[in-house]
């Protein structure tokens, strides 16, 4: 680890995870995380005010853990990066205010960055420099996007996104229908292993010839699953949870991987990065690998731990911005819950 590369501290508070990460260059030093997920469980979704309170409580202790794990001190930090958006406003503001204060107190530059671009950047910590251009697909409880990335530091172009539910939201809602816990991704992934993905022909949203080629829709699928389960219940028949989970999951990952491969082909790009919490799904990873191999596309997927929200991804993007000589954020940086994807830093 060359000590001449900048040490970057990253802050992520866009949803329910308080993530603080440290990277030097593209080397991951630490990734401390506190989550308020358990407090949201009984509400079946993230409650913004609960998340914001938890971020404040966790902030300083999580920063301390990040420094302790990395074996460095605050005074060693060369630059700070923070998720400025998109995300929950109240949650984002805790991270932005904290990052601004550390930057002020340590007298280092601050970069307000885009959460989605950070999901792409994190892969560099495990697999080295991205080939540019690359196609990126980001799928989580809060976002589902296909991006063309000619230059991760300043040129990220949206190709498509969900027109209703995020992919992860569909997992949460279907889990609820099946009586599985929140968040729904991991339990559906587990249940689906014992099920037959071809047992129920659930619809593939937005895959018609006249549909937007890179947009997603998961609302119809979610409703179809609920209807199917209710019909069974009304008929007094048992619900085959494993089969429903497998068939639902297959419908989601079929559409995601088909559109991602098509985006690569249409744009003449032979590299695909998948990130976001849903990228931890084992069937998505397997099918993406299969289809990319068949299409001659190099697939890069961060380990599941780095797919979900964390501070290291923000530090990773910050590190790239420092290296590229991008100007730091202005002193009046704030949070933007709807920060457009083509704004990498601001």
């Amino acid at each position: 680890m060359p000590a001449d590369q900048p040490l970057v501290l990253g802050f992520e508070t866009s949803c329910d995870e308080t993530g603080i990460g440290l990277v030097r260059g593209q080397t991951l030093l630490s990734d401390a995380l506190a989550t308020s997920m358990a407090e949201h469980e009984r509400f079946g979704g993230v409650v913004p005010e609960i998340a914001s309170r938890a971020h404040l409580e966790a902030m300083v202790p999580t920063v301390h853990r990040a420094f302790a794990e990395a074996g460095v001190q605050a005074s060693d930090v060369d630059a700070i990066a923070v998720t400025s958006g998109p995300g929950l406003t109240g949650a984002l503001l805790v991270g932005v205010a904290a990052a601004k204060a550390y930057a002020l107190a340590l007298d280092v530059p601050l970069y307000g960055v885009n959460h989605l671009a950070a999901h792409v950047a994190v892969d560099e910590l495990e697999h080295g420099r991205l080939a540019e251009p690359t196609i990126a697909m980001l799928v989580s409880g809060g976002h589902s996007s296909l991006l063309l990335v000619p230059d991760l530091t300043q040129d990220v172009q949206p190709l498509g996104q969900t027109i209703d539910d995020a992919a992860g939201e569909a997992f949460d809602k279907v889990a609820r229908v099946l009586g599985l816990p929140f968040p729904g991704g991991p339990p559906i992934d587990r249940a689906a292993r014992d099920g037959d993905p071809a047992s129920i022909p659930f619809p593939r949203g937005l895959t018609g010839p006249r549909d937007a080629p890179y947009d997603f829709s998961f609302s119809g699928l979610k409703t179809a699953v609920a209807r199917w389960v209710e019909a069974r219940e009304r008929a007094g028949e048992p619900v085959p949870v494993a089969d429903v989970a497998a068939a639902f999951q297959e419908a989601v990952v079929d559409v995601l991987t088909a559109k991602a491969v098509r985006a690569c082909r249409d744009n003449g790009v032979d590299h695909l990065v998948i990130g976001g919490g849903v990228a931890a799904n084992s069937r998505l990873r397997a099918l993406a690998a299969e289809r990319c191999a068949a299409a001659g596309i190099v697939l890069r997927t961060p380990s599941p731990r780095l797919c979900t929200d964390n501070g290291a991804m923000v530090a990773a993007l910050g590190s790239r911005l420092v290296e590229a000589g991008i100007a730091p954020s202005a002193a009046d940086l704030g949070a933007d819950s709807a920060l457009p994807i083509d704004v990498v830093s601001r």
Partner: peptide, 8 residues
């Protein structure tokens, strides 16, 4: 959080 971070 600003006060906490500055002091820390």
């Amino acid at each position: 959080v600003t006060a906490a971070a500055l002091a820390d």
